[in-house]
């Protein structure tokens, strides 16, 4: 990222970008409030809300009791009646305590009420493995919410997207869940100044290629890009698509790429079975792009196990650069 500073572009970390987005939103819109466990003086478990309570006060940066169901529900009710709450789950795993409010209430209220109500709530969810936090603090459950009509589910991979997506989520009249990868919080990158919106539901081709398509989300985008760089040295040209949004999903960008390369691999950190890869694979199989497939579709997801504690096991449980590289090579070399 030094290259960016050399070009004079402003560089922020992923968590700084999110914090900046929240600060901009709160400056511009008095109905925006933050809620969550230990987000005040503590600054949040990952320090994302650090110092915001000093700027905006405890009435707008609200420490909640350890009551995820109630807290999420309060955010839903507040959103339903005119506020724009950003509710931070301390870990995305804890969203399971609030499934009722997220899935039965937030997602469905607009529909159940025949379009007569809006729930513009934003849920922020630190996700993913790699921190040694083991089975109940390391999951990637974004695909669960991909199954729920009424929700929008985002996975920013860069600081720029993290800020732009949060601002877009706040501008959106429907509930949005943003899964932030814990290992990305310290990642630095160019972040434009001021307010801007990253479109929701639009994937991004991060690297063009001709031999195969790798669709990845969140931190897997970076791993896929590194794998693609290594493969390029062997003459294998991989296209890497940053999914960015699980719901709505950008079918067009994916299908266009598959039509071009004829080979598809989906890389995600959630458990492989019944995941994002299944959805994308089926989507391609059901589409006109099917006739362009020149090899079976590959899915790389997490092992069929809870996230383990031992660091080597933890690493082995989810796709890494080497595993992505090896699988992509086999796919490109027609060994699959």
């Amino acid at each position: 990222m030094n290259a960016m500073t050399e070009t004079g572009l402003r560089v922020l970390s992923y968590s700084e970008a999110i914090r900046e987005a929240m600060a901009i939103a709160m400056e511009n819109d008095p109905t925006v409030i933050l809620m969550g466990e230990d987000i005040g003086v503590y600054g949040g478990a990952f320090q994302v809300t650090l110092d915001l309570v000093d700027r905006f006060g405890p009435d707008r940066v609200m420490d909640t009791p350890i009551s995820e169901l109630g807290g999420a529900g309060v955010a839903v009710g507040a959103a339903l009646t005119g506020l724009k709450p950003i509710y931070e789950f301390q870990f995305s795993d804890f969203a399971m305590l609030a499934m009722e409010q997220i899935v039965n209430q937030a997602a469905k209220l607009r529909y159940m009420l025949g379009g007569e109500a809006s729930v513009p709530v934003v849920f922020r969810l630190p996700a993913g493995s790699g921190t040694g936090a083991a089975a109940q603090h390391s999951q990637s459950i974004e695909a669960w919410f991909g199954h729920v009509p009424g929700l929008k589910v985002l996975q920013p991979a860069t600081p720029e997207d993290a800020k732009g997506m949060l601002l877009s989520a706040l501008a959106d009249p429907d509930p949005v869940m943003i899964f932030e990868h814990k290992l990305l919080y310290k990642m630095k990158g160019h972040v434009p100044e001021g307010s801007y919106l990253t479109p929701i539901g639009k994937a991004l081709v991060r690297r063009s290629g001709t031999d195969l398509t790798i669709v990845a989300g969140s931190i897997m985008v970076h791993r896929a890009l590194e794998a693609a760089e290594r493969l390029a040295a062997e003459g294998i040209s991989a296209e890497v698509i940053d999914l960015r949004s699980i719901r709505p999903i950008d079918a067009e960008t994916i299908l266009a790429s598959v039509r071009k390369t004829g080979r598809l691999m989906v890389v995600y950190e959630g458990v492989k079975a019944f995941g994002v890869g299944a959805e994308i694979s089926a989507m391609v199989a059901e589409s006109d792009a099917f006739d362009h497939l020149d090899a079976p579709i590959l899915r790389l997801g997490a092992a069929d196990a809870p996230v383990p504690y031992n660091p080597d096991l933890e690493r082995a449980a989810v796709p890494q650069v080497e595993t992505i590289e090896a699988a992509a090579r086999r796919l490109a070399r027609r060994e699959v």
């Binding site: 006739d291 362009h292 497939l293 020149d294 090899a295 027609r334 060994e335």
Partner: peptide
């Protein structure tokens, strides 16, 4: 045969039985 191979065969009016496959 892959879907792409089948589509190509359809488009050119050949039957795949004639085509030797080099894939796995």
């Amino acid at each position: 045969a892959t879907p792409a191979a089948r589509a190509a065969a359809r488009a050119s009016g050949i039957t795949l039985e004639e085509v030797p496959g080099t894939g796995p």
